[in-house]
Every structure is written in C-alpha cells, then in structure tokens.
C-alpha cells in the first residue's frame, strides 16, 4: 500500500482549470501540531481512498481568527476573517470540510456576516455522508467490541448541535459506545476553548482537562474518541497525568476509521 498522500492545493487545481468537490480546511493545529497532524493525515488517507476530489489552501491558509475573537480581539479576528474570505471567494469555494470544530464554527457561523458564505461541515459529518453514499466501507474488525467513549467538543456539540454524526461512526465500527456522566448537551468542556489553549489556567483546585479525563476514565474506556485537535491534546494530557496512557488511547474519529480501514 502506498503511503504517499495525495494533497492537491487549490492553486494547483485552479491552474489546471479544475474545481474540487470540497475544500479541506486544515486549520493551525492540523497543520503544525504534531499530534493533530496525524489526524490530518488520517483524514486525507480516507479522502484519498474514497477518491474524493478535494484540495487544501496550503500556504494560503491562515488562522480563522477564532482564538483572537474568543480572547476579545475582534479586530484581529475580522482582519483574519476578511483575508481568508478573500482567498476562499477568489477560488469560488462552495463547500468546506474541517477536522477542527473551532474552524468549523467560525467559518460556518461568523464568516457569512463578513461576506463568506459556504456550506461548512465537520469531518465527522462528511465521513458519515461518505459512508451513506457507499464511498467508504467501514470494517469494524479492529475496534469490534472495544469500549469507546466520545468526548463532545463544545464547538461541535452545544455550539452547533452536532451530536450524532460522530456517535454513528463509532457504532459503525462495531464498538461499544459508552457515555460519560456529562455528554451531549451537558458535555463538559476539555478546558481548551475560549483561547484557554494558549494561556495558563486561572487559579483553582484542578485543571478542567483532569476533571474531564476523570469523567472519561470513570466509564472504563479503552479509547477516548475525540473530534477536535484541542480536545485531543487536553484529553491526552489528562490521560498521561493519570498515568493511564498504557491502556487508554485518545483517538480522533478519523484516525479510528483510517486504522479500521488499514490505511
């Protein structure tokens, strides 16, 4: 099996007079964070396998401005947004898929008011659609019967009401989906949102990611499934803090599907 990823850029396709079906918005974490890059690659492997015509912006992509906006810097957010929208509109982008719920939320909800109107889907929604259309088939063998709990990313769940797409994918892997004490609408934050990822937490008696990891470990999962690169980092840190990295893995749903497919 070839390990070579096919990652066309919008610029290349544009030069060749082609238009992809969907733009894959990689996001900063997906581009630069070592852990998140694995999620990016897993998702691309699935796209390649399913022969999805997609492209990335590559070096033309820039931060959506989400952390700046949540930190209170509306000015920087709008500068980023307007610049990104110019690039996206220049390429005539109609549909965007991203593996980051923060990028997803910002582009979907906050870009339209600034002139950026696209159909935006989270990668779990996109994967669910591929499955429904028969473009990928999921062999559950690898995860069959495994106890998996799903951590709802705030910006996917509460913020945008997407709760079922990731869960359906987990069930399709023949895994045993177990829910934490706080799930879906009542899901507990991992502690990274609202620009917390980039600062030290305020004084308290515990870190939020530890609290959430404890909730996850309470249901004795073999895998904590995530759908956000930041949640992934926070939960991975939490599992390490509890010295459980030997028997509990934190995986993005795209990674699980890529593993199941032996990609």
């Amino acid at each position: 099996m070839s390990n070579e990823l096919r990652v066309p850029t919008m610029a290349e396709l544009f030069a060749a007079g082609q238009e992809p079906e969907v733009l894959f918005w990689v996001g900063c974490a997906g581009s630069f964070d070592d852990r998140a890059k694995k999620i990016t690659k897993a998702f691309v492997k699935i796209l390649n396998k399913a022969n999805v015509s997609f492209a990335v912006l590559g070096t033309e992509e820039s931060c959506t401005g989400d952390p700046a906006k949540r930190a209170g810097n509306e000015f920087l957010f709008q500068m980023q947004a307007v610049t990104n929208i110019e690039v996206l509109n220049a390429y005539g982008v109609k549909k965007v898929v991203t593996a980051c719920p923060h990028c997803f939320n910002t582009i979907k909800n906050e870009y339209p008011g600034l002139g950026g109107n696209y159909e935006v889907v989270h990668h779990t929604q996109f994967l669910k659609q591929l499955l429904q259309d028969g473009r990928i088939s999921m062999e559950g063998g690898h995860f069959k019967g495994k106890r998996i709990t799903f951590h709802d990313p705030c910006y996917l769940g509460r913020a945008n009401g997407v709760y079922e797409a990731p869960r359906e994918l987990i069930r399709k892997l023949d895994a045993e989906l177990v829910e934490m004490k706080n799930c879906r609408k009542k899901g507990l934050c991992c502690g990274a949102g609202g620009a917390q990822m980039f600062k030290e937490p305020e004084k308290g008696n515990k870190d939020v990611n530890i609290e959430r990891t404890e909730q996850a470990l309470d249901v004795q999962p073999e895998i904590i499934a995530a759908g956000c690169p930041f949640c992934n980092t926070m939960m991975t840190d939490g599992v390490k803090n509890k010295e459980r990295e030997g028997d509990v893995a934190v995986m993005d749903i795209a990674e699980m599907i890529a593993t199941a497919e032996d990609l």
């Binding site: 990823l5 990689v26 581009s31 931060c63 700046a68 990822m197």
Partner: peptide, 24 residues
C-alpha cells in the same frame, strides 16, 4: 503572544505560514 503570532504568521503558534503544508 498568541495574538502576536496570528498577526505575524497566521497561526497562534510561532510557525511560518510557508510551512503550513509541510505535514503532507
């Protein structure tokens, strides 16, 4: 720092925007 990074190189961390596709 995070906002300075976004302003200068389009990411919350100090990575060069030209390296955004290196993962591929």
């Amino acid at each position: 720092n995070m906002m300075g990074n976004i302003e200068n190189n389009g990411a919350p961390w100090p990575f060069n925007q030209m390296d955004r596709l290196n993962w591929a």
